[in-house]
Design a protein around this nucleic acid. Structure first.
Length: 338
DNA sequence: AACCGAATCAACCGCGTTGTT
DNA sequence: TAACAACGCGGTTGATTCGGT
């Protein structure tokens, strides 16, 4: 990338000087700072006609006095039609927290799991909201301590918020309105139910790398999907041997976006390698979802950290008192400006 | 109404990676 | 295989907005 002009002929040197002067002139002409409406229109129209890519050339051909880099960024972060505007939903926040705990600052990777959200937006969310609270608590935001606090207080609160939204929302809210399905190739598509049966809005299924293999082998009726909250973790928790097996009092229905699959204890359909990733689930047999129903027993070490319904925390943990209060009082976390 | 600090977020920058010649 | 261009990512900056006094 970095070239030296040493050992060049005088002709070459002259050429280089000319080209660098041209570059300087070009650079002087280049616009910086906020984009104008006119520039946005130029860029959008050009991409609509010619597609994206080759950004430097695109910038010139479109008549934009911007760097290719700047055009790319403007398109990806702002102009692209599928960009989602507005505040992050509790579901999205929850996902960010979980994925960040797994992948760290891999913003673009995290963004791939949140359709319509950009890496920049997620990065900003993390820095302005999450890190802010870490600072307030005098904890390093990348420390285990903070991670524990997030898992123990923040995530349950988000889950609670999701539950609350579920109760207050209409029962015929379809899952497609508020959730996404994470497919095995890591791409994410909005869930579109083939059924007219109302689906619970809080269902999240993600990181299907670890979804049971059986999922694709089931032939099922999509209309019977009724798990209230099903979540799979990509990160294998430390398993308490005595608690390894999830207790499914009723069959568990899991959707991969295309079909619904049923698991239960009796026929051991949940493969050993996958049930341990099951974080929590609850199920209402009757097709609706029953928020009053007890949660099915949690699996893995997360159950010692919290339960979905009660947000219980093991006694004696360092964060249960003062710090816990600090977290509980972070009401701004749950405020969503419209 | 004016000021000021904090919060937010769009945009920039540097650098590593990937693709092309 | 080297050189270069383009791309993409993560960190940082700075303009704008918000909220309190």
């Amino acid at each position: 990338m970095r070239s030296s002009s040493a050992n060049k002929s005088s002709f070459q040197k002259k050429e280089l000087m000319n080209s660098s002067m041209e570059e300087e002139e070009e650079a002087a002409e280049l616009r910086r700072g906020p984009w104008t409406l006119e520039e946005d229109t130029l860029l959008s129209h050009y991409i609509a006609r010619h597609g994206e890519g080759r950004w430097n050339m695109l910038a010139k051909c479109a008549g934009l006095k911007r760097t290719g880099k700047s055009c790319r960024l403007r398109w990806l972060n702002y102009l692209k039609p599928d960009i989602k505007r507005g505040n992050l939903t509790p579901q999205e926040q929850l996902l960010i927290l979980e994925l960040h705990s797994k992948w760290g600052n891999r913003w673009s990777k995290i963004a791939q799991c949140l359709p319509g959200r950009t890496d920049n937006e997620i990065k900003n969310y993390w820095r302005t909201r999450v890190q802010k609270h870490a600072r307030q608590l005098n904890i390093e935001s990348d420390s285990k301590k903070f991670l524990d606090a997030v898992k123990s207080f923040w995530m349950p609160r988000l889950l609670q918020k999701i539950e609350q939204n579920t109760t207050t929302s209409s029962s015929d809210v379809n899952l497609k309105n508020c959730s996404h399905q994470f497919l095995s190739n890591n791409s994410v598509v909005p869930f579109v139910s083939s059924s007219t049966t109302p689906l619970p809005p809080s269902t999240i299924i993600y990181n299907s790398n670890h979804l049971p293999k059986e999922i694709s082998n089931f032939s099922t009726n999509p209309g019977v999907f009724s798990s209230e909250f099903v979540k799979f973790c990509d990160q294998k928790p430390e398993i308490n041997p005595e608690k390894q097996k999830p207790v499914l009092e009723t069959p568990l229905h899991v959707t991969n976006g295309n079909s619904v699959n049923v698991y239960n204890n009796s026929n051991s359909q949940i493969p050993d390698d996958s049930y341990s990733y099951m974080d929590c689930c609850s199920y209402d047999m009757e097709g609706g979802f029953n928020l009053g129903a007890p949660m099915t027993e949690l699996v893995g070490n997360y159950d010692e950290m919290y339960s979905l319904s009660g947000c219980q925390v093991a006694e004696g943990d360092w964060f249960t008192s003062d710090l816990g209060d600090a977290f509980w009082n972070m009401d701004d976390i749950w405020q969503f400006r419209e």
